[in-house]
Amino acid sequence: MENEQQNVERLNPWLHIWVKPRAVIRQELDKSNREKNFILLAIIIGMLTAITAYEQQSFGLNYGLMALIVLIGGPVLGIITLYFGSWINAVVGRWIGGVGRASDLRVSMVRGSMVPSLATVAISLVDLLIRGEEYFVSVDTLVEVRGMNILDMVTGGTPPILVLLSVIAFIWLAVVNLKSIGEAHGFSAWMALLTGVIIAAILVIPFMILGMIVAAFFIAI
Rank of each mutant, 00 (worst) to 15 (best):
L151K: 07
L29I: 05
L125A: 11
L193K: 04
Q27N: 15
A174H: 01
G73F: 12
N149F: 04
G78K: 02
I43Q: 01
G46S: 10
V110C: 10
A216M: 11
A189D: 14
R146S: 05
S166V: 00
F217W: 14
L40S: 13
E35H: 14
P21G: 03
W87L: 10
P116D: 14
A169K: 10
L178A: 12
R106W: 05
L15G: 04
H16Q: 05
G112D: 07
L164M: 09
G73H: 03
A216N: 12
F170G: 13
Q5E: 15
V70G: 13
S138K: 08
L15P: 00
A122H: 10
I45N: 03
L41K: 06
L142S: 04
D127E: 09
Q5C: 01
N62F: 01
L77D: 09
N33R: 07
L125I: 12
F38W: 01
G60D: 04
R34W: 04
G186M: 11
M114L: 09
I96M: 05
K20V: 00
G157L: 07
V145H: 09
S32R: 08
P75I: 10
I198A: 03
M148A: 02
F207M: 13
E134P: 00
G64P: 00
G60W: 00
A174M: 12
S138E: 11
R111H: 13
L165N: 04
N33M: 10
I219A: 03
G132F: 07
E28I: 01
F218I: 14
A50T: 10
V163R: 11
Y135L: 01
S124D: 14
V214D: 02
E9F: 00
I181G: 13
S113Q: 11
L105A: 05
G98C: 07
